[in-house]
Design a protein around this nucleic acid. Structure first.
Lengths: 189, 189
DNA sequence: CCAATTATGGACGAAATGGTCCATAATTGA
DNA sequence: TCAATTATGGACCATTTCGTCCATAATTGG
């Protein structure tokens, strides 16, 4: 063995995630990041490889913590309420709120960066599956139309979830976005 | 009077729009931009002021050309078909396709940049109005449920339009996105 | 305690960043 | 034709960018 690392890998990763999440990839400077988390360059390059690899690691981290927590909430609660709550969170967004990191990555880098795209896709699929299972649960409980295709509806929900975040970023009034939620829920039955 | 400018202002603006549109604000370097459009720095700063002002000008330009063209199509055609066509365009997107510039700006800078946010919002509102008027036309023609609130539905359509673009960026299969369109249209009646 | 190995601090570097400045060129009204 | 004004090319600048490198520190197995 040899000298032990003095920093907490996941703590640094979480710090990087916060910065990338708020500012995006390009606008986040490595020096600023290292300064923020208090890490030297050699330690960083030794542990993470490069700024880009750090982004990928942040994205993985986001999926397995933040996104997974949202998914867990969805899977746990009563179907209709759980779905509504997932949307109500987003209705509360202000323009300066952090929208889903998957969306940030998809828009800034998804067009050119295959490794980012694969991860975003995986995250969206996890979310879609969670919605799908929740819809099926709701159908079994007689809350949603039983003849509807849960897969189609779950993709529809994911699309709406991200669309509403764009409206929030643009400062479209809360009441306008809230009324949209009713239309979305109506599509479930 | 004095010496005449040798470059075409709008042509340069269009070139800048293309670069910002494809790569985003931060990732687009001024040197690269000037090199691309063949403009000297002094001419650029004389005419446009700064990189940031150029972004704002590009955004305005986008709204009055690209977005307005989409809006015109929407307003011209038969209601149901016009709405469907506006979505079908997006279904054809590949991951590398340029998503709506309003979305790129909203996600990259909307959280921190008020001037960008105001423009994005105005663009979204123009789009929402066009959808709204188209829905009303459809209601008058008996194609859509007459008792529905066209304003709510139009916001709903805008949200879906942007949500589907995120899915496209993430390489979610075309057939999954296509099926979503049916669900969206069903909400109109 | 020594050898091997890994972590750390920070100096260093080359290139790129957005932006300024100035000498010169071109144009028009008088 | 001359004065006034604006456009242009490009040198120049400070700062920041991501990344490398190396000497030194710390740790463990033998």
């Amino acid at each position: 063995m040899a000298r032990l690392r003095e920093f907490d890998y996941e703590q640094v990763l979480d710090g990087a995630l916060q910065l990338f999440w708020r500012g995006g990839y390009e606008a986040t400077s490595l020096d600023g990041l290292l300064n923020e988390v208090g890490l030297s360059k050699s330690s960083f390059y030794g542990a993470f490889g490069s700024k880009h690899e750090m982004l990928l690691a942040s994205l993985d981290r986001y999926i397995e913590t933040v996104l997974q927590a949202n998914i867990d909430e969805l899977r746990r609660g009563p179907p209709r309420e759980a779905i509504m709550r997932s949307f109500e969170k987003i209705l509360g967004f202000q323009p300066s709120s952090k929208t889903c990191f998957l969306q940030v990555c998809a828009i800034e880098r998804g067009g050119q960066d295959r490794l980012v795209r694969m991860r975003v896709r995986r995250g969206l699929e996890l979310l879609e599956e969670a919605y799908r299972d929740t819809i099926v649960r709701g159908q079994e409980a007689g809350q949603f139309a039983a003849d509807a295709d849960a897969r189609v509806l779950s993709t529809f929900l994911v699309a709406n979830l991200y669309g509403l975040q764009v409206l929030g970023r643009a400062n479209i009034a809360v009441h306008a976005r809230t009324k949209t939620l009713a239309t979305i829920m109506k599509a479930l039955a």
